[in-house]
Write a protein that binds this DNA or RNA. Structure first.
Lengths: 98, 98
DNA sequence: ACTATATTTCGTTAATTTACGAAATACAGT
DNA sequence: ACTGTATTTCGTAAATTAACGAAATATAGT
């Protein structure tokens, strides 16, 4: 599997998935702990986890029967860089000054 | 119409739309000029413009029959801020240090 | 082998997205 | 009023997404 920028943005386009990421910014959490704080069926949540994994926005550690999710901040950095480049050039061009 | 973060990320999830934004970072362009550089039907492109407008990522100026699109960088800044907050906290918490 | 717990996979349904070509709209020039 | 140019809207089709509950899988403890 290769991760694309499209996958990452698509993953971020869901409020539920952004909520999951926000929970993970404080500490790593298991699927069960996340499901306690978000009001959708566990099967639905599991689908969201797959989207986040496919975008490489989270990584998992399996220990016994519990799966712990944690943020992969490097992809988030990449996204920020991409966004920065988007309006970077505009200020380098003197003819844009009035 | 109110613009949501979901709209913005959804808009960015399409390679065609990111290509449009990349073209606009150098200079404002009309729909026709953009369509010269991107290989999809004009009607399809028009749909993409609508998505970008609905996300407030571009603004338009109509002059005669031509519509000029330009980047709205403030939304892009907002997105960068949102992403930054996502991994900010992790480094503020001393208990995360080992 | 059995039971309980954690999580995912499957089947289904409804909604949304992306693409196209054809037709419609809007404006400028003649 | 007519023509050409720029762009959008409409109708349609195919693919993807997001949700649910039920069933399946995996592991730990008894």
């Amino acid at each position: 599997m290769i991760y694309t920028m499209s996958d990452a943005y698509q993953a971020l386009s869901s409020p539920v998935r952004r909520q999951i990421l926000a929970l993970l910014k404080d500490k790593d959490l298991s699927a069960g702990e996340i499901s306690e704080q978000i009001d959708v069926a566990k099967s639905t949540l599991s689908g969201h986890f797959n989207v986040l994994k496919s975008a490489d926005l989270v990584v998992t550690i399996k220990e016994g029967t519990t799966i712990t999710y944690s943020l992969n901040t490097s992809v988030i950095e990449d996204l920020m860089n991409g966004l920065f480049n988007l309006f970077d050039k505009k200020y380098e061009k003197p003819e844009d000054k009035e």
